[in-house]
Amino acid sequence: MFQSALKPIQSLASLKLSFVAMAALLAGILYSYFDQSQSVLWLAIPLLVLAVNLLFAMVYNPRIRQNSGLLMFHICLLALALLAALGQLTSMKGRLEIMQGQVFDSKQVTVVQQGPWHSLQALNKIVFEQSDFQVDYSQGLRRGATHSQLLVNGESFVVGDNLPFNHQGYRFYTTSNKGYAVMLAWFGKDGKAIQGAIHFPSFPLYDWKQDNQWFTPAGQLLNMTFISNKQVALNESWQLDSSQASGSLQIETAPGVQQILKPGQRLKLQGGELEFVEVRMWMGYSVFYNPWLVWFFAVSLVGVFGLTWHYYLKLGSRKIVTRDTDSVRAEHVINNA
């Protein structure tokens, strides 16, 4: 009676179910690869079935229980599935553009993905200032090393390429996005003065369209074009150095009415005056947070160790033997040919 009640539960440990769930996961991956609209469910459902199957297999399948290496491998697979789920709940991905001389503000971060258990409050504890950066280019406009200097409590850190800035569990990676920014000051006729910056598109990727728009506090639309003094060399090596950023600003106040300003120059507009203060550069970062990364790595390695141990015990000491009748039949056919 008890045994028959256990049967349906034991079937959850079936190797055939493992095969079906793995095949379903494969189908889900292929479906998501070619049609990305429903990717999460197509992967999550087979993974959930696999996790349940794994759990029961570890309890009921003597083959797994009695092979320490195989058991270790399967426990690690289950742990990886749990860690992936935890990662989805607690992780965060974002991007950020920060200008030279600017202090990090969590409001600048554009959140791309945020797990329901992730609080962005921790970002408020991060303090750093973007300093100068250099990006090397070689012939054919191929990007080389990026050296981005950050100031943290008076200390200088250089990050870039394979080296992120780690703080409070968040990782800031430099990206290929970086460009010019112009500092502007507005002096209204009402006596109010404000200062801010306009970021232009990524440079040198979009060196041919360094355009942006801005509405003055008086409501006038300005079409701006930044004209860099830095020439993009296609056939030689060069360096983009933020400390040497320079250029002029072309402002279109009305269709066909343009004026070019140099740093320090002012332009009279409706309701006030605009000053082009100086040229700076901005650096683009991707922001990543996943507190389970180290666990992922450790569990993966332990799993591979388990698998290796299993194969070492299984294959290392065993002589190659006949496996199935079909092979014997094949051999028989050959030998009689």
Binding site: K93, D161, N162, L163, P164, R171, Y173, T175, S286, F288, N290, L293, F296, F297, S300, L301, G303, V304, L307
Partner: peptide
């Protein structure tokens, strides 16, 4: 192959900010 996936993920985390 498992080792290749693991080492690739570690590298991808450093190189592109995601594993």
């Amino acid at each position: 192959h498992s080792l290749m996936l693991i080492s690739g993920a570690v590298w991808a985390q450093d190189a592109w900010g995601r594993f």
